[in-house]
């Protein structure tokens, strides 16, 4: 009897194995669809699992990039040496100019502080800043993101803004233990509240996986022209106001197109701007 059961069990197990093997491709396809559905409905589960996996994969990319970095650094060093003399002369001139500007800005700051005190103005919280190193980039027709090493810093949180030395790069999407994923402003998931610098017209800057962004939800009669600078609005309290984002390059029937200032290609480091308005209050 026992032998019969074992045989029965054996048959069942083998049947299950056979069925799994036969339908493996269907099961795996279904699992892929299930992942997509879960990430559409519940981003928390996928986000947490993804950040855990990211912490395992990112050190590998980091290690693999060492030879590439050494080669690039060597090349850059040789090129930089050639440029240094010319740059030095230009920088001396620029330094004199900046000193003048700095003196003027300091006087404006004092004036601003005095006027604020006079009006009893409550200033917004000061933004914190930390610089992090890019480990991996994923820029293609379907996604635009980078992974950066955060070293377990508790200063970096989901929603914080990422900047290069020229402008806003993206927003922190996923915070892992040692690495974080940053969705670039050109990604289709990116939506940033912005204003036109010259007349403070509000809008939302939307990415579409190309290198150019779209400025949407602006008033119809708004005075926007080519060359206008776009900066963060600070609305919703997620981003500090006034950070440079891009410049309007075309206005037509399809909408207003903005070219971001920041160029992530070749960037090694980015700054994360923390602006937790709720915590400050």
């Amino acid at each position: 009897m026992r032998a019969k059961n074992k045989k029965l069990l054996f048959l069942k197990l083998s049947k299950i194995k056979l069925l799994t093997k036969r339908f493996a491709i269907v099961i795996l396809f279904l699992s892929a669809f299930a992942f997509m559905l879960i990430s559409k409905t519940d981003t928390k589960v996928i986000g947490e699992t993804s950040s855990l996996a990211m912490n395992i994969v990112s050190p590998l990319i980091d290690t693999l990039s060492i030879p590439a970095k050494i080669t690039v650094k060597g090349y850059d060093y040789a090129v930089d040496l050639q440029k240094t003399y010319k740059e030095n002369i230009a920088l001396k001139g620029e330094n004199l100019k900046l000193n003048d500007e700095n003196r003027y800005l300091k006087s404006l700051e004092i004036e601003n502080r005095l006027l604020s005190r006079l009006l009893d103005y409550i200033p917004p919280p000061e933004a914190t800043s930390s610089t992090i190193r890019i480990v991996a980039t994923e820029n293609d027709a379907f996604s635009n993101s980078v992974i950066a090493y955060t070293g377990g810093s508790d200063k970096i949180r989901k929603g914080h803004i990422a900047m290069s030395n020229t402008g806003v790069v993206g927003r922190v999407e996923n915070v892992g233990k040692m690495y974080s994923k940053i969705t670039l402003i050109t990604d289709i998931n990116s939506k940033i509240p912005v204003i036109v610098e010259k007349n403070r017209v509000r809008g939302i800057l939307i990415g579409d996986n190309t290198n150019i962004n779209k400025l949407m939800f602006t008033p119809r009669a708004a005075d926007i022209s080519i060359g206008d600078k776009i900066i963060t609005s600070g609305i919703a309290g997620v981003f500090p106001p006034g950070l440079p984002v891009g410049v309007v390059i075309s206005i037509d029937k399809s909408g207003i197109k903005v070219k971001p200032y920041a160029d992530i290609q070749g960037a090694e480091y980015i700054r994360i701007i923390g602006y937790d308005i709720d915590e400050a209050n």
């Binding site: 997509m36 993804s50 990319i61 993101s145 969705t183």
Partner: peptide, 23 residues
């Protein structure tokens, strides 16, 4: 499947799309 999953981890596309494509 593992290669597809690896791509999903490093990219910002919805999780599962690279697994689907590679399958």
């Amino acid at each position: 499947y593992i290669i597809g999953m690896l791509e999903d981890i490093v990219s910002s596309t919805p999780f599962g799309i690279n697994i689907f494509t590679i399958l």
